[in-house]
Design a protein around this nucleic acid. Structure first.
Lengths: 320, 320
DNA sequence: GAACCCTCGGCAACCGGTTGCAAGAACCTT
DNA sequence: AAGGTTCTTGCAACCGGTTGCCGAGGGTTC
């Protein structure tokens, strides 16, 4: 039904190769011929079939974007930004959700491999070894994880965690709960790394946890019981869950316990109390990941984006 | 680099067509041969190239999913569900965001046409005429809009709006503000349609508005000034914006004004006051849209999903 | 006016599969 | 034992483009 290169060729009496060149190597065809071809193509509504083109060129102009959980509010802005940036470069994006399951992640990458020029892996749950293995078949850019020799977009979680801890220390908090995320999460490790060096603070670790509101809800009792006056949560969802869980136990935030999240997602901004959080540059990360994928000659360039502490209403002076 | 059908054929001494059939028509090949082929394929890590296959079969096993704004919290659950359902059917999903711009939407559909078997259009902003025209080139399933003869997944907005108005009426509200969404939004029209028939109520319309928090924030003053004691908002984001805008004017929700949203998104659930809302079955819609696209022989089956009023904390008795 | 160089467009092979056709083998029938 | 089935497999064309190679034609140069 749709017009092919042959139809165009026939319509203006030239060989298909001339039509092909009109689009992929315009300088090789006579301006007069070219405009005839263009006119015919336009007339027939011809659009080159990208899949067919990919067959010979090896470039699909597609990319994959794999995230652990699309409905985690952290990802949509990143997805949106990546997708927009890709479109600007004439690329289309397959978006897939792994449900936080490494096996799904692997299978997804495998089936995607042939039809994309590269894959953006956001907060992957696969092991480094597996990722390195898969990288032999398709270029990756990893977001939120450091893997040696692999292009990555990192957010400076350590810096953010430090800012958060400093902020809490400045408010007089000494005993602070650290509510981590899922096993294998790079972000979680970074946070713990910073925490381990934090001098003069008394840190209590809780984890692993689901990186969701219910994860926060679930640990709230333990956190309340441990005697901490402040919590640094894996992300805003967990933080919101904590706030809710604490509220259910009649523990006020920030009056009795201060809570800091990570990400700066919309629900945190709208919440009462508005959540103090370490803002992650998700939009920038999405754009950057696309750029890295497309420009990288395969080199493992790593970009680290700054984070920022946004003090809102969920943190206050330590209760004495 | 990656193994092709030829490599497999060579590896086990059969013709490529036999390998091809082993995968696409297993009953046509001798069980003994088949297992040899499968062994060799497995050994070489062979995976059929879907793009190449699509060239002859005409089926790409890809679909497009076009939404107005990925970062609107209404969409991620829908996207996630659609994507999961598609994966279960061995389909991959291109997700694209139009930034609420009809021209982007059109261009996106055009470039996607050749590489997908169908497109899911969520809350499209294009005109009916244009959608019908584009439908000649690629099958559509439209979500949240009724277009004659085209498969659609609708959510029963009218029913939801009625429930919401009844609820408000039951609480003694008489003068109610209706804060609509963008021009051309089917949902908005449905709401207004219901409102128009609402007997005994005094309705004030505001619109069009951005379907976002800032849209709600922006109309808050007008709404406050119009004397309504309750608001029915286009969606939860607008409702949240309204609540915030009203709060800035020291107007309490629900004490002075009741607010109802649409969608039932996460931020609404986490908000204080927790938002009363008409829940939209986004997850179900995502799944259903995929099913409709894949099973439809092109017929315009239409599915209407029920909505439900979820009464939480943002509505209360009318102030007298 | 012959030798030379460019530009332009056709030819055909190829990318990785799929599929209609036909031929050979094995198995039945009668 | 001849003729007919049913299976299984190979052959080759085709899907929609891309691209290296070659030759025709026009323009230059000496």
């Amino acid at each position: 039904m749709a017009a092919t290169i042959k139809d165009v060729a026939r319509a203006c009496g030239v060989h298909v190769s001339t039509v092909s060149r009109t689009f992929s190597a315009p300088h090789l065809v006579n301006p007069a011929t070219r405009s005839r071809v263009l006119a015919a193509a336009d007339d027939l509504g011809y659009r080159p079939n990208r899949a067919a083109r990919a067959l010979t060129t090896g470039r699909t102009f597609n990319m994959g974007l794999i995230v652990a959980d699309i409905s985690n509010p952290f990802f949509p802005p990143l997805i949106k930004a990546a997708q927009a940036q890709a479109r600007g470069r004439d690329y289309h994006v397959f978006v897939a959700d792994t449900d936080e399951d490494p096996r799904v992640e692997e299978e997804l990458i495998r089936t995607l491999t042939k039809q994309v020029d590269g894959v953006l892996l956001c907060s992957p749950r696969l092991s480094n070894k597996m990722i390195e293995r898969l990288a032999e078949d398709v270029p990756f850019v990893v977001v939120n994880r450091r893997i040696k020799g692999m292009p990555a977009v990192l957010m400076n979680v350590a810096q953010g965690a430090r800012l958060a801890l400093d902020h809490l220390a400045g408010l007089g908090h000494r005993r602070i709960a650290l509510v981590s995320g899922p096993i294998g999460s790079w972000t979680s490790n970074e946070m713990q790394g910073v925490a381990a060096e934090a001098a003069g603070l008394d840190l209590v670790f809780f984890g692993p946890n689901q990186p969701t509101e219910s994860g926060g809800l679930a640990v709230a009792p333990e956190v309340a019981a441990c005697g901490a006056t402040a919590v640094l949560a894996y992300n805003d969802l967990v933080a919101l869950g904590l706030v809710e869980g604490l509220a259910a136990m009649e523990i006020g935030v920030p009056d009795q316990i201060s809570v800091i999240g990570f990400d700066d997602i919309l629900p945190g901004r709208l919440n009462r109390p508005k959540l103090t959080t370490v803002a992650m540059p998700a939009v920038q990360a999405g754009r950057m990941a696309v750029d890295l994928l497309l420009q990288s000659g395969g080199e493992g360039a790593t970009v680290t984006l700054d984070t920022a502490l946004i003090v809102r209403e969920s943190t206050g002076r330590a209760q004495t």
